Every structure is written in structure tokens, then in C-alpha cells.
Simulated assay, not measured.
Amino acid sequence: MTKKERTERILEYFHAQQPEITTELEFGSVFQLLCAVVLSAQCTDKRVNTVTPALFKHFPTPQEMAKAEAEDILEYISSVSYPNAKSLHLAQLARKLVEEFDGEVPHDFDALVSLPGVGRKTANVMLAVAFDQAAMPVDTHVFRVSHRLGLVTKKADTPEKVERELVKLIPSELLSRAHHWILLHGRYICTARKAHCNKCPISELCPSKNK
């Protein structure tokens, strides 16, 4: 079976099971999604979802958050990973949105990565989830599962290289959904500590099965 054939069958399975899929982060606006994604770096979505209700109640918009100091934001996000750095990033991010983007989250990649705390993965999440653009964010789950399923080559040894190979491999109309399919498969079945091959519905397609 070629990589293309294996990829097509894997995508067909996921599409049949979850034709519509999106992030597990909870948010009420594009700005709130951006904050949640920044907070989710090296942190679980579940943890982020426990802190954002209070955070967004007090700072629901860029304009409100821009008035806050990092210490004010830290009070609400202290239980996430790297809270000091993230509280500073959120304060700076909100101010830049107000000062340079009229309080609106930009729609293009270069503008997104110019924001404090926003890297390649976060920018791609925003493009995929908020703006319905073809994008492939690569986190640890996508990186791991893409290699285990043989969707990328061994030469793809960085998240950006994995992203490039997946963008070439997966049809653009499925790209954003494929990100969520692969991510959730890694989060719940093909986990980092141990791949649960006995529970995997696509194990017969996986070159790494039981390894």
C-alpha cells in the first residue's frame, strides 16, 4: 500500500466518523479563541477550559484586556503552564490588537505571528478554526501520530517540516479537519506514553502497529 493510498483510507474513515469537527477549546469570540490557544501551549485544553470562563468574564474583549497589567491576568491563569510568561503575552497581545489592528484579530499568517505569544502553530490554529482557511497546525500529537501512521517521512524532524509534508499530502479542503482528526487520535488513542493499538479503528492501516 502506498502512502497516498493509506492516507486516503485513513481520511475516509475519519471523515465518515466525524465529518464536522473543531477544537475542544471553549470560547465566545475570535479574540477569546486566540487567548485560549495561547494558553494551551504545553497545557491541556481541559485545563485551559477551567480558567478561561473567569478570565473572559473579566476581560471579554481586546479593549478590556488591554487595560490590564500582566499581574491582573495572572490571577486568573495561575494554574496553566508558564503562567507568568502567558499573562505577559496576553496583556501585550491585547494592546497590540487595539493599537495596530483596531481591536480585530488579523486574518493572515504574517500578521498573526507578529502578535506576542503567537507562533506558527497558534497562527495556523486561528486560520483553520476561526477563519476556515486551509491550514495544518502541528502540535506534539499531530507530530507524533503523523510519524506513527507513516504520513510523513523520517526527514520531517521538526513541526514545520511535518506541516509542509502534510500540506502536500492532504487535499486542501480536508486539511483543517485532518488536523483535528489526527490531533484527537493522538490525544485519546495513539497517546505519547503508549499507543493503544487494540482500541485503534485504523490499526490495520498503521505501519507502526504494536511496535
Rank of each mutant, 00 (worst) to 15 (best):
A111V: 09
L184G: 04
L151M: 14
D132N: 15
E173F: 13
K57S: 11
R187H: 04
A41H: 03
Q32R: 03
L55G: 02
L11Q: 10
P53W: 06
L34C: 13
K46Y: 10
G119Q: 06
A16Q: 15
V48D: 00
K211M: 13
H147M: 13
L151A: 07
K96L: 11
E173M: 09
I77S: 00
A192D: 08
R144P: 09
F31L: 01
K3L: 14
E71T: 12
T61M: 01
V129G: 01
L33K: 01
Y76A: 00
S176P: 13
G28R: 07
L33C: 03
V51I: 14
A66L: 08
Q133L: 14
K155P: 11
P207E: 11
A192E: 08
R148F: 05
D157A: 15
E163H: 11
K3E: 14
V80A: 00
C197F: 02
V51A: 09
G28P: 01
A68T: 03
P137E: 07
R95K: 12
L166C: 09
V167Y: 12
C200P: 09
P60I: 07
F56Q: 02
E204V: 06
K4A: 14
R193D: 10
P53I: 06
T7G: 07
E12L: 15
H58Y: 09
K4M: 12
P137Q: 10
F131D: 14
L88N: 05
Y13I: 11
P171Q: 03
K3S: 12
D132E: 15
T44K: 05
P201W: 01
D102Y: 07
L90G: 01
H179G: 11
E173L: 09
A192C: 04
D45W: 06
D108K: 10
C206V: 05
M65P: 00
P62S: 04
E204T: 09
A111N: 12
L33S: 00
R193Q: 13
S114Y: 06
E12T: 15
V138Y: 09
E165S: 15
E12V: 12
